[in-house]
Design a protein around this nucleic acid. Sequence first.
RNA 1: GGCGGCGUAGCCAAGUGGUAAGGCAUGGGACUGCAAAUCCCUGACCCCCGGUUCGAAUCCGGGCGCCGCCUCCA
Length: 468
Amino acid sequence: MTELVLYNTRTRTKERFEPIEPGHARVYSCGPTVYAPQHLGNLRAYLMADLLRRALEAEGLRVTHVVNITDVGHLVSDADTGEDKLEKAAAASGRSASEIADEYTEQWRRDLRRVNCLEATVYCKATEHIAEQIALARTLEAKGYTYRIDDGIYFDTSKFPRYAEFAHLDLGGQEAGARIGDVPGKRHGADFALWKFAPPGVKRQQEWDSPWGRGFPGWHLECSAMSTKYLGAPFDVHTGGVDHVAVHHTNEIAQSECALDIHPWVRFWLHNEFYDFGGEKMSKSKGNLLVLEDLVDRGFDPLAFRFFFLQGHYRQQQSFTLEAMEAAATGHRRLLSAALEVRGAPGEAAPDEIAVHRERFCQAVRDDLNAPRALAVAFEVARSADLGRAARRALLLEFDRFLGLDLATALPRVAASGGDPRIDALVAEREAARKRRDFADADRIRDLLAGEGIAIEDTPAGPRWRRG
RNA sequence: GGCGGCGUAGCCAAGUGGUAAGGCAUGGGACUGCAAAUCCCUGACCCCCGGUUCGAAUCCGGGCGCCGCCUCCA
């Protein structure tokens, strides 16, 4: 048994994690729909998955991590009506759907790298798995779970008795108006499209032939088809945002369990809560989204955002404000300084000296990925006067395998000299002025450099400078 | 209307029965020619009212407030 305990949406309890296949954890994460920039809120889902990944590896498990990229079929409305998000974005920009998908996929991948998310084992695109999706739909059809209407092939949710179970749905009690825009002919409000026909007279950029006619796959199908392809079934963990519980994941489960005759199809379901951006909700459709690049433009280190993420538990809503972001950036910078300070510390740490702290850190990680608690331990270690430098070095480097804050690799922000001859000369000149107690001249040079964004730090060992 | 979550110091937040982690900010101090950086010290009647209990931020009931999903979104 591992020591890792995770909150499982399926059972609504914390459960001890044990992989189905000994020594190997198989994880699927719902990835982005690449029709628009991925904003800070989106990033939280992947940061959470990254934490899971690191925690599993810390338990000594090999992890196969599959992340999908939705580049077709996700409609503006989840009620199977409205336009395809990619097609809509393409029409609005005059570019092709694939160009748009490529652009935002690249932006997303770059942002993941910048916040130190580990590379997934497989990134898979919906458009590259059309055959698998059709095969899955055909299986469902052969088993009698589908019906055909003018609009497409639909999954009949009434044929799956456990449909409401996962999300604790009260299908009868849901607001009548919620599904008003429904497709004519759907038998039940919750029924969903497996395959959508291309609208008559409309030439879509993305459409394929199928046994039922030309069209495109329903959004939910890709996750069932691709996870099965790359992970087999059943598998261990499926992650995503809380918004997916009621519709997307519920439908994935219905498709997969019916097609594969498996229950439960996935052992653990992890869902991250949303960030609260205060007041007007940040969303793609409102056009007020904040992306990682915006933070970089404001002078933030991308990893300061990871630090912000770590300060809250993934299952709680967290308030994002620029003030909180500044606080996180300062905290991150100081933790880096502390790590840098002890990085070259010689000698070995005494095992019993570090055992208690290691244990506290691991307990936090193992308790449903409690990053804020783990981070607190890291700070206590970093600032502990009782611990030797070698012990602090060893612990912080070990902790960073989970935190991912670059404690081991961040470059020194402070250079004693050698970085820039002109600046070194000016610093030396100021030091000379100070020696002769010509503080007016010394301050003039300091102000000059400050104007270039260079700060001088006077230390017992002499002056040094840094940028920023 | 249905489902779910939250309300802990100025801010971001851990903590789910035994008298409140951590980060940021504030104030004080050390250091400095003065600063900066760093370090030390500094702060909570845990939304309100009842109840259970020897004991509750933590459990139960009732309020008030905020948020999310079902309806673009992680």
